[in-house]
Write a protein that binds this DNA or RNA. Structure first.
Length: 428
RNA sequence: GGAGAGGUGCGAGAGUGGACGAAUCGACAUGCUUGGAAAGCAUGCGUCCCGGCAACGGGACCGUGGGUUCGAAUCCCACCCUCUCCGCCA
């Protein structure tokens, strides 16, 4: 969401900088509505001023027991005109809001220009792919053979794109969640949050899922609640409509939540396995910073997510998303892609973004200098978030990268403690 | 789900149609005082929008949205939230 004044003054510049990203935006309607709003606002304010003065006059006349009929009649006329203008203004503002909320964020200058995933730029790589010494099996074959993954029964109780984990599989998922949360809270300085999984429309608008992407969300039938597609939504909105004291920044939260996504439009993609489910677990990292610190924070936060992969000994690469692949609300994004032997390719396992003030403006998250010394000006914070990590996909990576010729799977050392000492998952 | 009470500034809390953007107390900031601190005194102390280089001027905001009225924090309606009691419940 853009500041309306900024939008008015720089509409063409913003339009140019967005390029293809702004293709859906109704620029000319916006321009017209902004001007209409300006005109109506000043009209209403002038009339209100008159009304205020006039009403004071009525009060004075009445106090002095003088006749006030004339003044009352005059003010009634002014009141009617105000009502008219305000109705018009309300309509204009509603339309304007709706259009303005659909303008994507401006990419940071360092974001590579490109049309699609192909133009994403590899920033660095860590580790090497494992040498298996046997043909790589898919994680669903491995999991089903071990009896720890059950897609058939998941389909029976829920449907396609759901999974049931059992035994060591369920334990492994839980181990990963705990491992990630422990690492982020004890070594990286994040505060743990366990938020609601259902949120209201305002929260979804604050982080940018609404109004444009409603079809991607699960929504309750009887009440206006949505299932969260990521913990980013409840955790970022924790500070909605707040003015934070400068001294509390940066704020860093980590949250484990299930995430729910309709996956509308992804029919036929990743139909097997755990890669693309309607419900999956994720440990999220969220940060609020002062504007001049957000890019440092993005590097730091990305590093925190990388640490998980490193401790698990999983080979990955870091990609800087190009302008064409950047999400709606993001100004800059790094994807972490983990190596999957069965697919012989890297797959996204984390996405770390700086939203700059885009979400903060939508959600009204501001900060203010401490005390009266510094200029007491309020400004919008910058918000960031990243997966640290997607738990299901991490489990996929473990099954595939640590698979053995006999069908068993080794548990990396970092997880032994979380698995009750289990070092190898074998068929029960 | 039923019954009742209530939502006012950073906090407490007054205000039930006109001089209220809002008393008072506290917190906080700055200055005075002090060897230093406390106390005391003085001043300041919300957010947003519009115009303006600025000084400044104007407007909005008392849970949210409508309505009544010349005029609404105050009256009416709807919704949201909080608290108490009852019912139900992991």
């Amino acid at each position: 969401m853009y500041d309306l004044r900024n939008l008015r003054d720089n509409l063409d510049a913003i339009r140019n900088q967005l390029g293809p990203r702004g293709a859906d935006v109704q620029w000319e309607d916006l321009r017209k509505l902004i001007e209409e709003r300006r005109g109506l606002t000043s009209q209403v304010e002038t009339l209100r001023h008159d009304l205020k003065k006039g009403s004071d006059e009525v009060a004075r006349l009445k106090r002095e027991k003088q006749p006030a009929e004339e003044a009352v009649a005059a003010m009634k006329a002014v009141g009617d005109r105000i009502a008219q203008c305000e109705t018009g203004l309300r309509g204009v503002e509603e339309k304007l809001q709706d259009l303005a909320l659909r303008i994507p964020n401006l990419p940071h200058p360092t974001v590579p220009v490109g049309r699609s995933t192909e133009q994403n730029v590899e920033v660095r790589r860590w580790g090497t792919p494992p040498t298996l010494g046997h043909p790589a099996k898919t994680h669903w074959d491995i999991g089903e053979n071990l009896g720890i993954l059950d897609f058939d029964r998941a389909a029976k109780i829920a449907g396609a794109r759901f999974a049931v984990l059992t035994g060591a599989g369920a334990r492994l998922e839980r181990a990963l969640i705990n491992f990630m949360l422990d690492l982020h809270t004890t070594e990286h300085g994040y505060r743990e949050v366990l938020p609601p999984l259902l949120v209201n429309r305002s929260a979804m608008t604050g982080t940018g899922q609404l109004p444009k992407f409603e079809e991607d969300l699960f929504r309750l039938r009887d009440e206006d609640y949505f299932l969260i597609p990521t913990a980013e939504v409840p955790v970022t909105n924790l500070h909605r409509e707040e003015i934070l004291d400068e001294s509390v920044l940066p704020i860093r939260y980590t949250a484990f939540t299930p995430c729910f996504r309709r996956e509308a439009g992804s029919y036929g993609k990743d139909t097997r396995g755990l890669i693309r489910l309607h419900q999956f677990n994720k440990v999220e990292l969220v940060a609020f910073t002062k504007p001049d610190q957000s890019y440092g924070e993005l590097e730091r936060l990305t590093g925190h997510a990388e640490t998980i992969l490193q401790r698990l000994g999983l080979h990955y690469r870091v990609m800087a998303l190009c302008t064409g692949d950047l999400g709606f609300s993001a100004a800059k994004t790094y994807d972490l892609e983990v190596w999957l032997p069965s697919q012989n390719q890297y797959r996204e396992i984390s996405s770390c973004s700086n939203f700059e003030g885009f979400q903060a403006r939508r959600a009204g998250i501001r900060y203010k200098g401490t005390g009266g010394k510094k200029d007491g000006k309020t400004d919008f914070v910058h918000t960031l978030n990243g997966s640290g990590l997607a738990v299901g996909r991490t489990l996929v990576a473990l099954l595939e990268n640590y698979q053995q010729a006999d069908g068993s799977v080794l548990v990396p050392e970092a997880l032994h403690g979380y698995m009750g000492g289990l070092e190898q998952i074998e068929k029960e």
